[in-house]
Write a protein that binds this DNA or RNA. Sequence first.
DNA 1: GACGCGTCTTGAAGCGCTCCAAAGTCTAGC
DNA 2: GCTAGACTTTGGAGCGCTTCAAGACGCGTC
Lengths: 332, 332
Amino acid sequence: MQDVADAAGVSVGTVSNVLNHPAKVSPATAERVREAIGRLGFVRNDAARSLVSGSTNSVGMVLADIENSLFIDMAHGAQDAARAVGQNLLLANTACDMRLQDDYLDLFDESRVTGVLLAPMEDSSSGIARIRSHGRQVVLLNYAPKPGTCCSVLVNNEHVGYLAARHLIDTGRTRLGYVVAHDDYQPVRDRRRGVRAAVEEAGPGVTLEEIDSVGLTAAHGHAVGRDLARRAPGDLPDGLIVVTDALANAIIHELHILAGVRVPEQVAIVGCENNRGAGTSAVPLTAVDMPGRMMGQEAIRLLMDEVASGKQHRHATVVLEPELIVRASAPR
Amino acid sequence: MQDVADAAGVSVGTVSNVLNHPAKVSPATAERVREAIGRLGFVRNDAARSLVSGSTNSVGMVLADIENSLFIDMAHGAQDAARAVGQNLLLANTACDMRLQDDYLDLFDESRVTGVLLAPMEDSSSGIARIRSHGRQVVLLNYAPKPGTCCSVLVNNEHVGYLAARHLIDTGRTRLGYVVAHDDYQPVRDRRRGVRAAVEEAGPGVTLEEIDSVGLTAAHGHAVGRDLARRAPGDLPDGLIVVTDALANAIIHELHILAGVRVPEQVAIVGCENNRGAGTSAVPLTAVDMPGRMMGQEAIRLLMDEVASGKQHRHATVVLEPELIVRASAPR
DNA sequence: GACGCGTCTTGAAGCGCTCCAAAGTCTAGC
DNA sequence: GCTAGACTTTGGAGCGCTTCAAGACGCGTC
């Protein structure tokens, strides 16, 4: 910066002003300084800037699973909203590894980001508490915080389950199956409650069987699908609520393509996330849509709110409603 | 830091040593300092650290399209490799917006990251030149740089096209179609060359028709699929090479599911990226696999190499070979 | 007891920037 | 010609840390 100042025949203070408060500098001087900056290839040092200002204009976003398009949608929404308020969004993927998650939380903490958006797959209260205790703001996505610990943006996951089950019941299915795994993951727990509520509401004519999958990936879905295909026809549920799309697609594949169990005629299937690709799978998937983009936007809004209002901030939870998207795997 | 020093009854220099050179400090003192750090909730300021050291231990990765699982794979591979050498990986998504890409390149430049990994969808020489001229190291992914400007990790995209076409020819298809769009995107251009080479090699018994799609998304694929479905049966290619998986899946859907044109019996289809989900679509997709993870790893290796060897570094290009994955849409 | 030699610890310089009080410059008005 | 007031520019303090020369301390040796 001193070099630039010398080259332009001004002081460093003026160079700084050209960069940060152009109105304070006369047009002629500013032009000279800018020319020198260009000629010398000067890049201001962000570390020094934020050392002085005590903050940055970046928001850190820690994502548990970048493979899942829901998380990608959240990142998209957050990015749009962040840029609208002059913040950059930095992404970090933990691949469901809590150690990595803690590392990234600390990294963002140490780099004094404006705030952190966290979309975890497990309870993360300790990490949140740690960086919050340093004054770092956190907004939790798709995972309810311990009451009063931070802001959060959730989807009404109970209603996700309810909508899925209700749709099957409304279209005449009476022997429902709920394929589920990873029951310690909070959104999954919530969905189950919704499924049960819909079944109870329907009365004794509708039954519910819970079918355990070992995990949430496609491979697990194939295993479940094969098991189901082996059942006697009368023993098969006529409607399946599947807790994730990846699982649902794999089950459809085993049932419909490989085993000849027709979807939706024999078994109607509803997925719970409406991931990218849900519409182009073997049988386009009826699914409950999670509004990922909007979640990201809301999260940034809450974060900037908290940053702006300082001490008198009150934590808020925004709950967005899911929406059923009807496709061929469980038609109207 | 001064507070910690006071609390532990030592000087700031000692606190710094506890954090960075524990061997220099007696165990008893170190313990006292650590206790004070914990009690006071001290978080060291990364900005000040990197201001002094002139560098960080983060690598920035700028991705053109986080929706495409190839990019996600690259991020995964890079993350693993980066952590193995003590670097954090920060992700940024440009959503194919060159202005955003430039902003993120500058952001990483200003924050003095160890280096930048860039996976663009357009020629980015000006951005690369800009930050390289400031001494920032860049490795380009899946896009050949101007000769001699930086290191890069590529896939032999010509061979991608060749493998796809060759497989169809080897399995007896004679009227090939190549569905393509976005021909200014370098990898796409390369693939076409490979397709043509395979067809020429096969001699006059094999014909090639190039079918223009307007874009690379699923919606474009549906349009192409509908057009094809309307053709007289004899007019339809019996083998289709499709430049991306998303496009291929949409075409399969239109042809096989909606129009009753059987895949692979009437038309065999090969995709070119082997994205996530290629195996679970309506008809599991035969596709040429891009080794995304390994690309990410190699990129970090090249970057750290360049950082370590300084002046005497010579740019290198690593070209990885693709591999054909045979599935139902174009069986053996 | 003086000395030398490790081992620990200290304190200050300086990284590159922003901010601000103070100084400098210019114009208009009397 | 002098001055008030507006506009520009300057130069130095200080952000929080690392590093390093120099000082303090302990201990064995002559």
